[in-house]
Amino acid sequence: MDTEKPAVMAEVFSILKDIPQDRSQLLVALWLVFEHYQRFRPEIVDAVSQYMNIPYAEVYGVTSFYALFHNPDGKNPLHVCTDVMCALQGADDLVKKLQALTQRSTVCVKECPCLGQCDAAPAAFFGKQVLRRATPDLIAQAIRGEDHA
């Protein structure tokens, strides 16, 4: 941990090198850092806090506010909508199947609120991809594609 910390600090500083040290850029900065680490461990939050010159508690407060940043195990999140419209189209069943499929993988299935794809329910969201009329096959394809990218 102690040997890791300066390395994380250097890495975060390098990720953020083009971001102005301005409070209004915090969310932008957090997205860059999240896309690299897929989670916010304390040393990562600390590094952002140091770089942006914003108190740790405030940075933590912002990271913990947003659902997409909540990813404690650091696996690649696969968000599956289980809200009303997707639930009518079998989203709960889809979640169960996906959980079984991804049990020992680097992907973590998360139920999420409405993804705004109700005309093609059920919907899922993985990385930068939105998956409409999602099936286990379609999602598996997307995950493989994302890994190869």
């Binding site: 850029q25 915090l26 912002v62 659902a67």
Partner: peptide
């Protein structure tokens, strides 16, 4: 980054300003 409430106009302003 995944917050329904951020669509509320004043919450959205806080989000742009880098706050919760």
């Amino acid at each position: 980054a995944g917050a329904y409430i951020a669509g509320e106009e004043t919450a959205l302003l806080n989000s742009i300003e880098g706050k919760r």
